[in-house]
Design a protein around this nucleic acid. Sequence first.
DNA 1: ATGATATGTCAATATGACTGACATAAATAT
DNA 2: ATATTTATGTCAGTCATATTGACATATCAT
Lengths: 168, 168
Amino acid sequence: MTDINILTAELPPPASGEQDRIRQAIELLFFAYRDFTSDPDLILARSGYGRAHHRIMHFVGAYPGINVAQLLAILNITKQSLGRVLKQLLRQGFVEQRPGKRDRRQRLLFLTDKGREFEQRLSAPQQVRVRRAFATAGPEAVAGYLRVLENLINESERKFILDAIKRG
Amino acid sequence: MTDINILTAELPPPASGEQDRIRQAIELLFFAYRDFTSDPDLILARSGYGRAHHRIMHFVGAYPGINVAQLLAILNITKQSLGRVLKQLLRQGFVEQRPGKRDRRQRLLFLTDKGREFEQRLSAPQQVRVRRAFATAGPEAVAGYLRVLENLINESERKFILDAIKRG
DNA sequence: ATGATATGTCAATATGACTGACATAAATAT
DNA sequence: ATATTTATGTCAGTCATATTGACATATCAT
């Protein structure tokens, strides 16, 4: 594997200034997210599942009783895409459905014990990564980090998403 | 489309404390990245390309003369996956190859004028999003944001990546 | 000359996403 | 009561992105 540090030595410098500051920030987000998702991806690949399975289990685990429409809105995918993966999770006993009390058309989603256990295994290394990064960067950096992330979210949904995340 | 704010009103509160703080941070990163990538994705979909095309053009544009091995290391994908997309970009005249001077086995990659123009169109809305988020959050928040992102990167590659990004 | 490296390419496969169409059951509106 | 809308599920077909394994070629390094 070629060491990517070779870039530093061999390549011409990029445009500098404001434009370059933004480029650096964009690349940093790319690399951070790349590694952030690699933790569960590794476990998932060995188990025969994909990132979609983790995303669903994460949100079902974090918001027990979430309905399908809400999950679709969060994941920004189509019903068909969700359906295929969700069906697998139901069949394998990671997720279960219960009809809504007020609206019996709804199929509210919950993790089973088995699902909760698997979700924890998937999330654990990711949580460790975040905890470590936070500890190293310090509380002020964390506050800034969260503030910028909030502002990267589409303004039209920002309020809703933040309410959902922080509720309770 | 069901408003996801319904979550706030209808769902039980999650576990609180440290565990929940980390969950919130993880979800925030998920949503921010989701929207961050949606800008170019929209343009790409209309043009018949995918996110992979943008990633390649971004890094070829930012590091003109990058070689294939470096690009593979950055993107963390296989040669075959890169090959398929890169071949398209070469055929369509967005990227060009030139043999390396010192090592003529290498095919150094460059954007053509056409490629640079397309890459700019893809990146522009993303850059605007980041600039706005930075302006709103303020310089201290930005510093913290960058510090945390750095610490999310795999420690084994962190130094190399930061050198590469910030070189010049 | 030999072996290692940089790149490219073939075949087969899997995952995750899409569009469009249609079906059912339950809630809601007239 | 009937009609419409909503929540969900499902079928068929397609596409983009990724994988592994094998192999070929050109060039560099010893």
